[in-house]
Structure formats: C-alpha cells, structure tokens
C-alpha cells in the first residue's frame, strides 16, 4: 500500500501512524512506525538479524547445558541398577548381619552410588543457610527501603555489593582457616568442619541476593498502600509489618526461594568447609558432603566413561533440576506479583 503511494504517501502514513502512537503514548508503536519507512534497507535488516542471533546464544547455552548434562546423566541410569541410587544391602563385617545402608562410595571393589547422603547433606547445609540469610537479608532490605535516609542508603548499599563481590573461594578459605575455629570454640563441636560452618559461609553469599530482591520488592509496593496505612494513623513499623509486608509477601517468598536455590548450588564454600563426609545425618554439627562438593572433589580424578563419571553427571543433573525448578518458581511468583507491585 505504502509502496504504491510513493514517498509522499509513505510520509503521510508515517505521520498518521505517529499521531496514533503519540495518542497512546507507546514507544514501541513509534518504533514500528519508524521501521516501515526503512523496511527495504538490507543493512538494517542484516544488523537486526545479527543481533537476534547473538541474543539466542544465552538460550542456546542453557539448552546445551541441559543436553550435555542429561546425556551423560542418563547413561548412569542405564549402567547402574536403579535401586543402587537409593542404597545397598551390606553385610556387617563383625556381626555378619545384613543391613540396608545409604552409602556413596564410588571407588573400590564394590562401588556404592546412593544419592541419599549427598541430597541430605545438601539440604543440611542449604536449609540453615537460607534460614540465617533470610532473617538478615530481609532485615537489610527493610533497612535500605524503609528506614535509611537516602544518604545513609547510598552509604550502606555498597557494603552489600562488596559482600556479594567476595569470591566464594575466599569465603570458603576463611571459614576453613578461621571461621571453623570460632564456631568450634562457641559450640564445642567434635568435628571442626561441619554443616554449620558451611551454612554460615553460604549465608554470606546469599544475604546480598535476598536483600537486593527484597529491597526491589519493597520499592515496588504502590504508594497508596503506604499512604492508606499512614492515613489510618499507623506508625512506620505498623505500616511495614501489617500493611506492606503482607501485601508483598509473595515477593519476599520469591527472594527466599531464590536464595535457597543459590545455597543449594554453592560449591567452593561447602567443598572447603563442611568436612566432606558423605553420611546421612540430621546433626548440624557433623561433617556432611553436598552434591556440589562431590562433583568438585571427585570429577577431576575419575576416568572418562567410567560408571562414577556418569554417576557424577547424574548428580549434576539432579542439582540442575532442583535449582532450575527453584528459579522457575521464583520467576513464576515474581511474574504474578509484578502486576500487583509496580516492578
């Protein structure tokens, strides 16, 4: 239509279109109006295609990660009998009794591939870490968003970024060399490196994650909620506790779940500070071994193509699935509250 009308027709169409989009105030409409004038330009088209291809790299990467992780992981499922991932019957050396035990011991004459101690170890570190970090992370978010004056906030915020910027291997080394001694002195633990040491280290990493999302969520609460509460005569703390927090509680929950996903995936701190003993326990003062630490500690020493190699990729697949699911839940919640909040 525009092509037949010639240049003048094009301009008129553009003007009409611009008027329409101005009226609706939508920038995208303006873009679209702009772009049909230049539809014929091959260079513009080529550049747009090039940019599109580049932006597909992220999606391609996540697909490849999924494919290559699960390809090897599935081989473990075919190479090793499935019940062995739960546990095996072991004959006790002394009493000659047969017991069902959960053991991860992939090297030796009869390798054992129970995933139970690794999963329980992961959660024994991740749950306390999330608990600690949620308290302080939400506290920091509240402080930055509700209490601090702008100048204090400008001063305080870089500290969170600084904490987030410390390499995890440094925190791991610190917990191993110094933090563990402190915790042993305070709690008189029999194992120097235990789940709690790891949990405290991991909470250092996820406090900034939770704090920054909580702050964003609090900032996104519509002003009306705040003003209505103040208009009823509520004080600041009453407003926050009884009006704002209930209003944005899904957002806070999303922050906690995101933090927990990070805690489950954290590697260097747990491999250095939790003692790395693969056992099923609910005692936070005992050494545990997480899924991440197992991969980090063992993959370097296994032969490619061996059963253990595939088993480690299976552990990686489980890890990927858990964290992917948690990220997905976070996104889902945020997507839902985004309309309610002004994010």
């Amino acid at each position: 239509m525009e092509r037949e009308g010639g240049r003048k027709g094009k301009l008129q169409a553009l003007e009409a279109h611009l008027e329409a989009s101005r009226a609706q105030g939508a920038w995208t409409k303006f873009h679209r109006a702009r772009s049909f004038v230049h539809k014929g330009r091959a260079l513009e088209r080529g550049i747009e295609l090039f940019l599109l291809l580049n932006s597909l790299v992220a999606i391609m990467a996540i697909t490849l990660i999924f494919l290559f992780l699960f390809r090897e992981g599935v081989r473990a499922l075919t190479a090793i009998p499935l019940d062995q991932f739960i546990g095996v019957r072991v004959v006790d050396y002394f009493s000659n009794e047969e017991t069902f035990r959960y053991i991860w011991q992939p090297v030796g004459s009869s390798p054992k591939f129970s995933l139970i101690p690794l999963i329980s170890g992961t959660f024994l570190v991740a749950l306390p870490a999330t608990l600690i970090a949620s308290g302080f992370g939400i506290g920091c978010g509240l402080f930055l968003s509700e209490i601090a004056q702008p100048r204090l906030r400008e001063l305080a915020k870089p500290f969170l970024e600084l904490l987030a910027g410390i390499p995890t291997v440094v925190i791991g080394f610190f917990m191993l060399a110094i933090g563990a001694d402190w915790i042993q002195r305070i709690f008189h633990t029999s194992y120097r490196l235990n789940a709690l040491v790891g949990a405290i280290g991991v909470s250092c990493v996820i406090i900034p994650v939770i704090a920054s999302l909580v702050e964003d969520v609090l900032h996104a609460v519509p002003r009306e909620i705040r003003e209505a509460s103040y208009a009823l005569g509520a004080t600041r703390s009453q407003t926050v506790l009884f009006a704002i927090l209930p209003y944005c509680s899904p957002g806070i929950a999303a922050a906690v779940i995101l933090g927990m996903g990070r805690a489950i995936g954290e590697t260097m701190i747990v491999v250095m500070a939790t003692g790395n003993a693969a056992q099923v326990t609910f005692d936070i003062f005992k050494s545990v071994r997480t899924m991440t630490a197992t991969i980090a500690g063992e993959l370097g020493a296994v032969a490619q193509g061996s059963n253990e190699y595939y088993a480690l990729f299976l552990v990686g697949s489980v890890l990927f699935t858990i964290t992917f699911f948690m990220n997905f839940v976070t996104e889902l919640i945020l997507e839902r509250v985004r309309k309610r909040l002004r994010m």
């Binding site: 932006s55 597909l56 992220a58 999606i59 990467a61 996540i62 490849l64 990660i65 290559f68 992780l69 390809r71 090897e72 995101l258 996903g261 990070r262 489950i264 995936g265 954290e266 590697t267 991440t292 991969i295 980090a296 993959l299 480690l312 990729f313 990686g316 890890l319 990927f320 964290t323 992917f324 948690m326 990220n327 997905f328 996104e331």
Partner: peptide, 25 residues
C-alpha cells in the same frame, strides 16, 4: 520475554554445573 527468561535461568545455574558443561561440551 523468552530471551530474558533464558538469561535469568542461565544466571541461576550453579557454577559447578558450568564446570561439568565445560568438560562435557
């Protein structure tokens, strides 16, 4: 939205999984 979701998910993948990916891929 699809690309952003991919980027967000990529950011949430544990770093050790990248190690497995680097070796495998």
């Amino acid at each position: 939205r699809v690309i952003r979701a991919g980027v967000n998910n990529l950011a949430g993948i544990p770093s050790i999984v990248f190690g497995l990916f680097g070796l495998g891929f």
